[in-house]
Simulated scan of single mutants.
Amino acid sequence: MVDPEFAAVLQKMGLVTPGTLLIMQPLTGGVASDIVLVEAPGRRFCVKRALARLKVAAVWEAPISRNAAEAAWLRRASGWVPGAAPAILGEDVASGTFAMDYLPAETHPVWKEQLLAGKVNPAFAGAVGRSLATIHGQSAADPSVPAAFANDDTFEAIRIEPYLRATARAHTDLSDALERLALRTLSTKRALVHGDVSPKNILCGPDGPVFLDAECAWFGDPAFDVAFCLNHLLLKGAREGGNKTDLACAFDAFLAAYFAWVDWEDGAELESRAAALLPALFLARVDGKSPVEYLQTDREKERVRTFARPLVASPLPRLSQISDLWRTTE
């Protein structure tokens, strides 16, 4: 089925001509955008259009201008780490739409699917940490980045409010601690943040990780990206039967690779901010606006709450301390 709006935008971008035979197939994987695989004579590519209201149970709205920020992040990341993001083929800022290369699952499996299937590769986790640190470091040294990604309002709408502030409303005794985290995160300006470094947004490419879905792109605190990614390695161990040991090895590999490349600020300070954010994000993925779908039982969710709540109230200074503590938690 061909969406006439998508077809019109593709013509506007110059990717197809009127009358071109098109096949369009909706793709899954996110709540914030419509994503379509387009097949035209001799080529295949993806088209992504931002939604003003996200596809979750709670009311969650965000400006479609984030689509332009995502395209800009993908371009910058590819320049700093070749192959770290798909190539942008065309863009229509007015409709919040861009087109990019399609990377098939046969050659670029999704990291989340690999992890949930028990295929945990610490070396790949290390490659993710190394690529992310390179992007952070290059952006911190680029004087054009702060103004180009001054997206505080968008980051507030699609990260701070639905994760930290929504969780504060569910855990009122932790509201002061969560609000302090929110304010510190928003006020820390160090590097270009992806904002959604989740395994569902990382492809296992033949030459290394490929990052997708940078809708939250923002010049701010790189500790958010670190905590956001490591959080998912903890969460997958919260499932019944989850392999905490292998996931902890991936956690440690990411950690070592990332901090080996931190030279734009004091590494211990960055780690301390990430260590404070991590348990808050852990708790947010069961009680915020975007709970993970693979924690379904009350026992799994309570396991997260029991572990995270004390660490939100009294943060540990080191990420390795959180990992070590989580390994021994029943």
Rank of each mutant, 00 (worst) to 15 (best):
F6I: 09
L10V: 01
L10E: 01
K12T: 02
G14K: 00
T20V: 02
L22S: 10
Q25A: 01
V31W: 03
V38Q: 00
P41I: 00
F45P: 00
R49H: 05
W60D: 07
A68C: 03
A69R: 05
E70N: 02
R75Q: 13
R76A: 04
D92K: 04
V93E: 12
A99W: 00
A99P: 07
Y102S: 00
L103S: 12
P104M: 05
E106K: 06
H108V: 07
H108I: 09
L116W: 03
P122Q: 06
A123R: 11
A127K: 03
V128K: 10
G129E: 06
A133N: 10
I135G: 01
P143Q: 08
A148Q: 15
A148M: 11
N151E: 09
T167I: 10
D173V: 00
D176G: 07
R180S: 13
L181C: 10
L183T: 14
R184L: 06
L186A: 03
S187R: 13
S187H: 13
K189G: 08
A191E: 10
D196Y: 05
P199W: 06
K200D: 09
C204N: 05
C204W: 03
P206D: 11
V210Y: 01
A214Y: 05
A214K: 03
A214C: 07
C216Q: 15
A223Y: 03
N231M: 12
N231H: 09
K236M: 14
A238V: 04
G241P: 13
G242D: 08
D246A: 15
A250W: 06
F254V: 08
A257L: 05
D266T: 14
A268C: 12
A268E: 15
E269G: 10
E271Y: 08
A280K: 08
L281K: 05
D287H: 11
D287Q: 09
G288H: 04
G288N: 06
S290H: 08
V292N: 06
E293F: 07
T297K: 07
T297R: 09
R299W: 13
F307C: 06
R309L: 13
S314F: 08
L319Q: 15
S320I: 02
S323I: 13
T329R: 09
